[in-house]
Computed example of a mutant assay.
Amino acid sequence: MNRRAPRMLRSTAALLTVFAAFPSVTHAQSPDVTNDQKPSFTQGEAQTDIIKLFKWTGSNPRTANVGTIKASDGTEWTVPAKTHFQSAPRAADLYNEANGVTPDGIDNVDLEAIPAINAGGDELFTGYVFGDNYFEFYVNGKLLAVDPVPMTPFNSNIIRFKANRPFTVGIMGVDWEERLGLGFEQFRGAPFHQGDAGLVAVIKDAAGETIAITDRSWKAQTFYTAPLKTKDCLVLRGAIRDSSNCSTEDTADGTAYFAAHWPIPPNWAAVDFDDRGWPNAVTFTNDFVGVDNKPAYTNFTDLFDAPRADAHFIWTSSLVHDNLVLMRTTVGKQQDQ
């Protein structure tokens, strides 16, 4: 997403929430969690296996590509992420200009027309997601749906599913890039602009009651961080991968910048995955994220910003640098809500 507020103001606000989000207690870890896993670094732009996933030719035209890049340790990485965009079911549209779905509000959305996906249960739930830019939505380790638009136009989505409480929700969020492997996008003529991310979600039950929202109780971990002007700006401490001190300034030439990568655990979305070592999600305000001109969000503020269930935008320590983020939570039983 393109940034408009002063960078210094945003960075200060982010740091205040970052420090509050890091866990102060260390737990014994199962093999699922490696607290001190060192990153694999790449430098420069990806030049191989470039594939066009999606092209938007409307306002703010963008092309979402994916490619591969080799690290100094010989590891090959897919950037910005290895996704299921080409193979998984697409989430239903809440608002999607690319498909001509542009309701003025939730009252104009026919939820009954959206099939419910079987996630291994009998109770009906509806998830609403606005992600910058791309998401994949899991329940109990099963991939239910992916974002139909990897980059632009900005859209929002609905996932209806059947499950039994408690259930585990996993969301992979990707902040897409145009300079593959560098984390840069083009903005107002600047070829090396540092965009930002963020994701907000609400889950309701069959009675329309909100049973889960994105907030600081979620776990969130980054697995791809860029652009890094220098590698040593990263703060690595146990499971903490903090890029909030790295430069957020645009540049005339970012081709020598670095990126940090970590392998994704294959069972990260499963119910029994041990995420206790992951940091809690960092929350960001609507103003900080910059959604006042995004009708995919603003047409549904009664849903996302309900007075008694106000969902927060969540991410990791840096909306700017952390481009591939895994987020998890467990939704409890009815009596625990």
Rank of each mutant, 00 (worst) to 15 (best):
I203Q: 01
I203V: 14
K204H: 02
D205M: 10
D205I: 11
A206Y: 00
A206H: 05
A206D: 12
A206P: 00
A207M: 09
A207E: 15
A207R: 12
G208H: 09
G208C: 05
E209R: 15
T210I: 14
T210R: 08
T210V: 15
I211E: 06
I211H: 10
I211K: 04
I211A: 03
I211T: 08
I211V: 15
A212S: 14
A212R: 07
A212K: 06
I213D: 01
T214Q: 01
D215E: 08
D215R: 02
S217R: 13
W218Y: 08
W218Q: 07
W218F: 11
K219L: 10
K219R: 15
Q221Y: 08
Q221E: 10
Q221W: 04
T222F: 01
F223A: 08
F223G: 05
F223L: 11
Y224A: 11
Y224E: 06
Y224K: 02
Y224S: 07
Y224C: 02
A226H: 06
A226D: 10
A226V: 10
P227T: 04
K229I: 12
T230K: 14
K231M: 14
K231R: 15
D232E: 12
D232R: 01
C233S: 09
L234A: 04
L234R: 02
V235E: 12
L236K: 10
L236C: 01
R237P: 00
R237E: 15
R237F: 12
G238F: 03
A239G: 13
A239D: 13
I240E: 14
I240K: 14
I240M: 15
D242H: 04
D242M: 07
D242W: 03
S243M: 05
S243E: 07
S243N: 11
S244C: 05
N245R: 12
C246M: 08
C246W: 10
S247W: 03
S247H: 03
E249G: 00
E249S: 12
E249K: 14
D250L: 01
D250E: 12
T251C: 00
T251H: 03
T251E: 03
A252C: 00
D253F: 03
G254P: 01
G254W: 05
T255D: 13
T255H: 13
A256H: 14
A256W: 05
Y257P: 04
F258K: 04
A259H: 05
A259K: 09
A260C: 06
A260I: 08
H261F: 06
H261K: 05
H261M: 09
H261D: 09
H261L: 06
W262I: 04
W262G: 02
W262R: 03
P263L: 03
I264M: 08
I264Y: 03
I264N: 03
P265R: 00
P265Y: 04
P265E: 04
P265N: 02
P265H: 09
P265T: 04
P266Y: 03
P266I: 06
W268N: 06
W268K: 07
A269Q: 11
A269D: 05
A270W: 07
